Amino acid sequence: MSSTQRKESSSASIAYARMLDDIRTGTLQAGDRVTETELATRLELSRTPVREAIRMLEADGLVEHVPRVGATIRKLGYAEVMELYDMRAVLEGTAARMAARTASDIELAELDALNADMATCSDLNQAYHLNRQFHLTLLDAAKNRFLLKSMAGLQRTLLILGPIILSDPTRAAASVEEHEAILRALRARDADAAEAAMRAHIEAGHRKRLRLLRDERRLTPQAEDVLAEAFRD
């Protein structure tokens, strides 16, 4: 690989990471058009690495080509949101089960520290990073590389849903309590309880996410009917 190719590859990686962050923060939202010229100007890069970054996002399933519109951030349907959270519950529940057996004392101490910091954090962006680090640390503690790879793809797709649900102070506080339930099970080396606590945590986030989508009117009429049924109790 020539020096020029290496530079372009590095620039494409930078553009890709910046665009992922823009999707996470809501700067780029589902349905937004993605143009090489605008992105290259904003990211202060040439169009070639930006074009490659868009291709990478398309391979991830985050960008799609809409007729007469061009490349856009993909919109997730209601069924896809349900399926994503179902898979997240399965994968992270399994990770918690494995971590109950394999997590080291150092990893458990790190999880404790992250959750304690999250409990006192008032900055939304910092809370996001602490929460993300908590879940990544637990995944690392499960010590299964295939599980990590599966979760990485899932998390990228979840970015399309936009800004995190921890913006609701009540949900942020509940997340800390749910993390603590997971930690109690991990400390006790109780695999069944760890998996159950993690599944309950993911499902609580799922319910909050669906409410946000409903309130923002980002669900189809058919989805509204299903959602009403889901919350009738």
Rank of each mutant, 00 (worst) to 15 (best):
I54S: 06
A230Q: 09
A12P: 07
A100S: 06
L139R: 12
T72R: 11
L219R: 00
R189V: 01
A127D: 03
M1N: 06
M151S: 08
K143E: 14
T37Y: 05
A174P: 02
E177G: 02
H129Q: 09
E80Y: 04
T102D: 07
Q29N: 08
A142Y: 05
A141W: 11
M87G: 08
R6L: 14
G70K: 09
D112L: 07
A230F: 11
A17I: 05
S167H: 15
A172E: 06
A30W: 05
S167D: 14
N115L: 11
R171S: 08
R218M: 11
S9F: 06
L45S: 11
D233M: 11
R207C: 09
A193T: 05
N115W: 01
N125E: 08
D190P: 12
R156N: 13
R217Q: 14
M98A: 13
D22P: 01
D168T: 05
A188F: 10
D190N: 15
A12D: 00
D117H: 12
V90I: 15
I23Q: 04
S175C: 08
A127L: 10
A172D: 04
N115K: 02
R6K: 13
A99H: 08
P49N: 06
E229A: 09
E180Q: 14
L213N: 06
E83I: 02
D190E: 07
L76W: 00
A17K: 07
A194W: 07
L111D: 02
E8D: 13
Y16G: 00
D192N: 12
R88A: 03
A174M: 13
A172M: 10
T137H: 10
R145I: 15
R74D: 08
N144C: 08
A142G: 00
S9P: 02
P67N: 09
A103F: 11
L84G: 07
V176I: 12
Y78W: 13
R189A: 04
L166G: 02
R207T: 12
S175Y: 01
H201A: 10
I182E: 03
E110W: 09
L219G: 00
E92W: 11
G162P: 06
K143C: 00
